[in-house]
Design a protein around this nucleic acid. Structure first.
Length: 353
DNA sequence: CGGATTTGACCCGCGC
DNA sequence: GCGCGGGTCAAATCCG
């Protein structure tokens, strides 16, 4: 019996499959999370259906009467093979309808997401360029250190286009343009409070070239360059949050012009594809979004980088999805339900619902 | 021994 | 013009 005709499991929920879904705002995060939740519910539903089907088949093969008249004893009464088959088909048809509805819901959700994203894009383009100009760098940075995270979203993207630089100061020098073009992103990483190292494992290799104690934060700020410099001009600054020492703020400048080292390895098995902790011996990503299931305002700000350059890289996006999945699977209720479904209950003789 | 890290010195932009 | 403070350089040091 070909169940695939009834149970449609062909949903493509990979956020990166259709179009890029930059996870650069809390709203985006919520949408992705919602989609993931739907996905898990959907998968679980499908699994229940298959389990039901399997149960019925088990009865068919195990509870055949010795007389072999073609009837089954199911749920304590005799049911003919024909009736059983009809019931099964009917049930699967019904569930297939539910699947279709879920699919439509997801499609609608995705449309809303896309619409919202375009609105945000429009909105961002209308933000006065002055707010994005590097001349405000010092001020904005200090305000960030005051944890005005709501404004973080405005401190991202291309910091001042070439046009903006000319409007602000016509005397802008050329070397500046390169800096202006560099995209700036900020990532909040929760680490062990006891961990004094300012190491943010993000899949890339970095070379530390400086450390400085800044005025408004007693924690030292570490300066890193991409190991592939000067080919790759990306820099990052890492500093502990002033109010939460367990949170490390990594500020990225520029975009990598190469794949992460873990993806450049020629023999990396396909089984590792998309995995964030790609190479046990190599750089691994340890971004901890553990609170993502119940994000508070500040947590959302932590989860969402203030900018997109690296956060929308396929690897990071994939990792984020995996983190969300991990968060879900860490939920005892979810795992209990899943375990119960997977476990020997499939073979139990007790009636299913 | 070579690459990575540390750390004091230096550079440079900004505000007064 | 000067001082402050963030960012970078580069020699010294560390480490595998």
């Amino acid at each position: 019996m070909d169940t695939s005709s009834w149970v449609d499991t062909s949903l493509d929920l990979n956020p990166s499959s259709d179009r890029p879904l930059p996870l650069d705002t809390p709203v985006h995060q919520y949408f992705v999370l919602e989609m993931l939740l739907c996905y898990f519910l959907f998968s679980y539903l499908n699994f229940l259906i298959l389990r039901k089907l399997f149960n019925l088949l088990s009865y068919m093969f195990q509870k055949k009467e010795p007389s072999g008249n073609g009837n089954l004893i199911v749920f304590g009464k005799k049911i003919s093979m024909k009736e059983e088959s009809d019931a099964l088909v009917e049930e699967l048809n019904r569930v297939n309808e539910e699947n279709k509805k879920l699919t439509e819901m997801l499609a609608a959700m995705r449309e809303s997401y896309n619409a919202l994203q375009s609105q945000l894009t429009n909105l961002m383009s209308k933000i006065p360029e002055k707010e994005l100009s590097p001349s405000k760098k010092r001020k904005s940075e200090s305000s960030n250190n005051n944890h005005n995270n709501n404004n973080d979203n405005y401190n991202f993207g291309i910091i001042g286009n070439s046009e903006s630089s000319s409007t602000d100061e016509d005397s802008c020098k050329k070397p500046k343009e390169e800096i202006i073009k560099a995209k700036v992103s900020r990532v909040y990483v929760r680490t062990e409070a006891s961990d004094t190292s300012l190491v943010v494992k993000d899949g890339y290799q970095w070379r530390k070239y400086g450390q400085k104690v800044t005025r408004d934060n007693p924690s030292p700020r570490a300066y890193f360059k991409c190991s592939f410099a000067p080919t790759c001009p990306v820099k990052k600054k890492v500093q502990r949050s002033i109010d939460d020492q367990s949170v490390v703020i990594a500020t990225y400048e520029g975009e990598h012009k190469h794949l992460p080292p873990s993806q450049m390895e020629p023999t990396s098995g396909s089984s590792h594809r998309g995995s964030a902790s790609l190479n046990p011996s190599g750089p691994t990503m340890t971004l901890d979004f553990g609170k993502i299931t119940k994000p508070s305002g500040s947590d959302v700000a932590r989860i969402c980088s203030s900018s997109q350059p690296k956060m929308d890289s396929p690897q990071v996006r994939q990792y984020l999805v995996e983190q969300m999945a991990t968060s879900l699977t860490k939920d005892p209720k979810f795992t209990t339900a899943l375990a119960a479904a997977i476990s020997g209950r499939m073979f139990q003789q007790s009636p299913v619902e």
